[in-house]
């Protein structure tokens, strides 16, 4: 199969470079042998994954593979679910976020989250974005105005809403609501942004807007995104991790993983043979 061989040769030419570049970066978030249990059910088995700083890491895999559970471990949102246990280490800048005495509230300010279904508060656009800074204790009107404007600009929503900041956030379209949720997450000044299928409920145009946004945001933030959409993972991410049945099957530079997967299961999944 000369064509195949040629493709492989071509890839080996390019890909180690991408992988080297990723491994040379500092790991903003790193997990070590993380197990996760919902009661008696073990949802994650020994996940060790490093997420390089100012890069996008995509988590892919079929429904129920544990990728969302893993994502929610990174800002301890699973704490809110009763009867769950986390084992192993999750390091943010080298510090275990599950260590005794760790401040969950402080953690969530540093690790923002955007959910699958946009969930704006039933308040004005302004109040939605200002909520994070407000609960963090910022009262000064001028400072709040500044944060709201900057966050909405970062989320590419400012031009559309600058004249209607007092309107209810629920009057916005689905795509706008999701960008508002991103702006809201940015307003607390996070370092890491977790996105749980942020575009799965949106039309193609809004999806493209979100993807462009992710591309710009990674300049400033470290992004971890869960997605069902393989093309999306290929488009927006630098590193991709494939989860299957609670295991981390394979992780690598995105173009490498998609063009030359090491594992059979990864190949079957990305070529659409299952999932």
């Amino acid at each position: 199969m000369p064509a195949n061989l040629e493709a492989n040769l071509h890839l080996t030419d390019v890909l180690p470079h991408a992988a080297d570049e990723l491994s040379a970066l500092a790991q903003k978030v790193a997990t070590k042998a993380v197990d996760f249990f919902y009661g008696d059910h073990q949802a994650l088995h020994g996940i060790s994954l490093g997420m390089p700083i100012h890069r996008v890491t995509a988590l892919i895999g079929p429904s129920g593979c544990g990728k969302s559970t893993f994502l929610r471990c990174l800002n301890r949102m699973n704490d809110m679910i009763e009867d769950t246990v986390v084992r192993g280490e999750i390091l943010l800048d080298g510090e275990d976020i599950y260590r005794r005495g760790a401040d969950v509230v402080e953690l969530r300010k540093r690790v923002g989250m955007v959910f699958q279904k946009s969930n704006p508060f039933p308040k004005s656009i302004f109040e939605n974005v200002a909520y994070g800074p407000r609960v963090a204790g910022i009262r000064d009107r001028g400072v709040l105005n500044e944060i709201v404007e900057r966050s909405l600009k970062q989320a590419a929503l400012w031009d559309e809403v600058q004249n209607r900041l007092r309107d209810s956030a629920l009057q916005l379209s689905g795509g706008q609501q999701q960008r508002l949720c991103i702006a809201r997450a940015l307003a607390t000044g996070p370092e890491v942004l977790l996105m749980d299928e942020p575009a799965s409920a949106l039309d193609p145009k809004s999806t493209a807007a979100i993807e462009d946004l992710i591309f710009e945001l990674k300049e400033t933030y470290t992004i971890v995104i869960v997605t069902h959409n393989m093309q999306q993972a290929a488009r927006v991410s630098d590193q991709t991790a494939f989860f299957f049945e609670g295991q981390l099957i394979e992780v690598g530079a995105t173009n490498e993983l998609f063009t030359n997967p090491r594992e059979k299961q990864t190949e079957d999944y990305i070529t659409g043979r299952f999932g």
Binding site: V105, K109, G112, Y131, A136
Partner: peptide, 8 residues
């Protein structure tokens, strides 16, 4: 969930 995720 949204409120908790924002550090409230």
């Amino acid at each position: 969930t949204a409120s908790h995720a924002l550090g409230a």
